[in-house]
Design a binder for these strands. Sequence first.
DNA 1: TCTTCCATGTAACGCGTTACATGATTTT
DNA 2: AAAATCATGTAACGCGTTACATGGAAGA
Lengths: 179, 179
Amino acid sequence: MPSTLGYALLGLLARRPRTGYELSRAMREPVGFFWTARHSQIYPELAKLEDAGLIGGKVEHGPGPRENRRYSIRAAGRRALAQWAASSTPPEPSRSVELLKIYSLWLADPAGARDILREQREQHRATLERYDALAAEFADAGPLEPGSADFLDAASVQRGRSVERAVVDWFDWLLGELG
Amino acid sequence: MPSTLGYALLGLLARRPRTGYELSRAMREPVGFFWTARHSQIYPELAKLEDAGLIGGKVEHGPGPRENRRYSIRAAGRRALAQWAASSTPPEPSRSVELLKIYSLWLADPAGARDILREQREQHRATLERYDALAAEFADAGPLEPGSADFLDAASVQRGRSVERAVVDWFDWLLGELG
DNA sequence: TCTTCCATGTAACGCGTTACATGATTTT
DNA sequence: AAAATCATGTAACGCGTTACATGGAAGA
């Protein structure tokens, strides 16, 4: 049974074969919207997935001192991933340092509090703009088949957009209340 | 410098003194909305905060084999917390097993996919209702002073509400698209 | 009598981050 | 010439979860 990171990597490899490096870039942007990992975690995890027979790697020789490997998902990996994807997820406790700080912001001086709230709002606005840009790209590419991998990519972006929109609006309200 | 959990505990103790057990309950509900911890993490952290002089504990004798202690925040703890609260937070990578599963849901059979999406939607709907109930309680209690601790409690609930509302709406849209 | 709640602690383990390490190719 | 990017790996450390351990009081 792979770890959550293992399933994240399988999810990427189910779309197309990739090298470790390509996977570590993908864990920043597309999948990085809901799961992230550094290369120091990815390479050992790929070795485990290969040992378990869920993926297979072919040696290529690129730049750098070591040989690099391009991994593909195997039938067993696809089966394991499909089963996991359709299993239920218990409610996830949210962890937000940002909200935790705001919870104690009544102790700080009002001017400093406003500054920090404005800064956090701008951060979320930037994230929202990133999602908007991605959503526009999907819209340009034409209609997508519901239930396809591309459709779910676009749907994930839509969820990010909606949530960030809600958060930015909340900051606007909060800053309005504080005058 | 306390850990994030340390600041979470200071945030609770800045409102009123509590015992370790009361803190561990609070890390489920009020603060649990944005930070959680088990008692196995809380008791050692309280010892560290006391060693650092940020909180002080008075022995009480309640039930059970051991003596219990009620902790209060000290002036140094309040200063450290106020400073931390007004410091900026870098963008936080989101981690959602739920979204990660949906990302690979195109591999599962459509009927099973719909079932799991409906189940997750109901989970979020239940969370939303919990936030709605809390928001109603705050509304009944009358108007709150902007910038007070109570006001920020209510504001946190509002944020949870808005975000969960957006997520539930997204599930409705997604299930509609999938027919 | 059994279960739940009150109440506090330690130990083992796994995941994730940071840092260490190496070196070629491409861009500024 | 320097910096960024491509490319892959290991090691140390800290945080968080699960499990182990103990025992009184209250309610079903």
